[in-house]
């Protein structure tokens, strides 16, 4: 046993013996302390999340989210699509030339029929059905764009008869 070992042993013993029972805190055996599980709150949070997720899944299963329906009925797609076809996706039912309710005061007797009954389908562009009317001077002839989607009113003849 060397000198340094003796000194070390003596110093350690002296320092250790300084600690006495009176200096220690009151004894608290481990069984008096409730054994806390740190994962207790995690378990509770996980269970809550699972319940919420289940509720969401059940809700979506019984009440699926439907896409919003358009307010107007959809016309069947034309057999041969034309460039102006999308304009007539929602044709006005009054585009039929048989409607006699709104005779035009500017129409002439020579006006031809604005459209044949067969031409009232949605596949026909409105430009083709535009009647060749003689407009009074100073009036602007209807542009094809203006005629789109507008009601093609039957033209009234001067003698009161309705053409078409």
């Amino acid at each position: 046993m060397s000198t340094i070992e003796n000194r070390l042993r003596m110093a350690l013993a002296t320092r250790a013996m300084q600690v006495t029972t009176e200096q220690l805190r009151p004894a608290m055996p481990p069984t008096l302390r409730p054994a806390r599980r740190p994962w207790g709150w995690l378990t509770l949070a996980g269970a809550t999340l699972a319940v919420v997720a289940l509720a969401v899944v059940v809700t979506l299963t019984h009440h699926p989210v439907r896409p919003q329906q358009p307010s107007t009925p959809v016309v069947p797609a034309p057999a041969s699509p034309s460039p102006s076809a999308p304009v007539f996706e929602t044709p006005a039912p009054s585009s039929s030339p048989r409607g006699p309710s709104t005779p035009s005061a500017f129409s002439t007797g020579t006006a031809t029929s604005p459209a044949s009954p067969t031409a009232s389908t949605a596949t026909t562009p409105p430009v083709a059905r535009e009647p060749a009317v003689t407009e009074p001077a100073g009036t602007t002839p209807p542009s094809p764009a203006a005629g789109r989607g507008r009601t093609a009113a039957p033209q009234a003849t001067p003698d009161g008869t309705m053409s078409g």
Binding site: M17, T21, L24, A27, P29, P30
Partner: peptide, 16 residues
């Protein structure tokens, strides 16, 4: 419990 007996018997020496 055994752990309590061990606690009372060994606490001081372990603290040292």
């Amino acid at each position: 419990p055994a752990i309590n007996e061990l606690y009372h018997a060994r606490r001081l020496s372990l603290v040292r």
